[in-house]
Design a protein around this nucleic acid. Structure first.
Lengths: 222, 222
DNA sequence: TGGCTATGGTGTACATCGTACACTATGGGT
DNA sequence: ACCCATAGTGTACGATGTACACCATAGCCA
């Protein structure tokens, strides 16, 4: 009987994996805020409580989603020097985090990291130690790099514009909003941004990244 | 009549400011997750809807809370070189963010920054340009530093332990949890952490911070 | 002095959420 | 032929944000 319904609706059985994937795409589209068990269940043509056979509760769901996202980040490739490997990983991480902007503040999950996470950490530390870092220095380096990466993603997420095209417009209205005498330096900065057309915040990423990587290299060889 | 009630209960009139402060301390105590309009209203012995005379809705409330928090961050002090000034600001920011851990992921508020925020930005840019940075370089520097600061706070917030005392314990259970053959480098790292007693993640902050500051100095004088 | 209106607090009501709990159908193993 | 683990259903409850209509007060102008 139920089987017939399933067949009619063209329903594949649920699974933690399918649920997590659907949840991620849903969050990508509408934000995590508006992701509810009910809407998620609807995606599968299923009653909300059905999800709870595969997921302990909403927190568990979100933990799983975060794990999926972090699984998308490339490991530092082997076969190159640590610097380009870590650089590549950083770029991948930024891409992934900007694809799943909702995941950024959410790393409470990592209180109990999944295997995906652990494997990634292992890869990174391996890359660094093989590149000549002591364990202690590797910790320093890893912490510095990831802080920068997540922080950048965080800032990028909360800019008052979404597309590069909007930058000028937003900047203009900001300038007109407040008397530039109140915030002279800020006003000058905004003017500069308007001036050099095609400025994108995303381009800032590599500047800071290289600052850190170069700094690490310097303390390494010392 | 109402006045009598107010007097009996010892009630001062509400105000946006009082509400925001109460909300912040409440969030500090129990986390933002469990901050509800009802609980907040209860703090004042008032019905939930009363708050809406001073606050547009919960988003507006949170925006206000974030603004309060960012107002606590020291501006870069004038009268010193840019490097120590910016260093001091960074330390202050970290302190504030670790005092209000809930505020870290929440900067969607800054989509419409309050005056507090604008004034702070102005201060920072001023500090940098007076220190010899071009506007373009100041943007680079500001972005790099703040990305690092927020990212570090984010990471710190989501560590699997709260007090330095727990570090060893957590590390031990982690080590025993997974076969160290699966994650050899990670295992080695954890062992190292256990080994050097009194390791605190907080100490990592200054390493990365100085990495960035030194890097900035170098590109400045170049 | 008396009444008008803006302001701020009240009460009720509703939609939406996460999820506990009891149920039913199914399909594989004995 | 039966049993039982597994997966999906249905109903129900408490909590939450907030719309809307209401009322008390205080300050103002006549």
């Amino acid at each position: 009987m139920q089987k017939q319904v399933d067949a009619e609706v063209g329903r594949t059985p649920l699974s933690r994996d399918r649920i997590l994937r659907a949840a991620v795409t849903l969050a990508d589209k509408d934000g995590l805020e508006s992701l509810s068990m009910r809407k998620l269940a609807q995606q599968f043509g299923v009653v909300p409580m059905a999800l709870y056979k595969h997921v302990a509760n909403k927190d568990d769901l979100v933990d799983g989603m975060v794990d999926v996202v972090f699984g998308e980040i490339d490991h530092p490739p082997s076969g190159t020097d640590w610097k380009t490997a870590m650089r590549q990983r950083a770029l991948s991480a930024r891409q992934v985090l900007s694809r799943h902007r909702w995941a950024i503040g959410l790393t409470e999950s990592r209180m109990k990291p999944g295997p995906t996470n652990l494997r990634h950490h292992d890869s990174v530390i391996r890359c660094l130690t093989e590149g000549g870092f002591s364990i202690e220095m590797a910790i320093h380096a890893y912490s510095a790099l990831d802080s920068y990466i997540y922080g950048f993603a965080l800032q990028e997420q909360q800019l008052p514009f979404e597309n590069p095209g909007e930058v000028d417009e937003v900047a203009q209205t900001m300038l007109s909003q407040f008397p530039s005498d109140d915030y002279p330096y800020l006003a000058q900065t905004i003017a500069e941004v308007i001036n050099k057309s095609e400025w994108q915040y995303a381009d800032e990423f590599e500047f800071g990244l290289d600052l850190i990587l170069d700094g690490l290299e310097r303390v390494l060889v010392r």
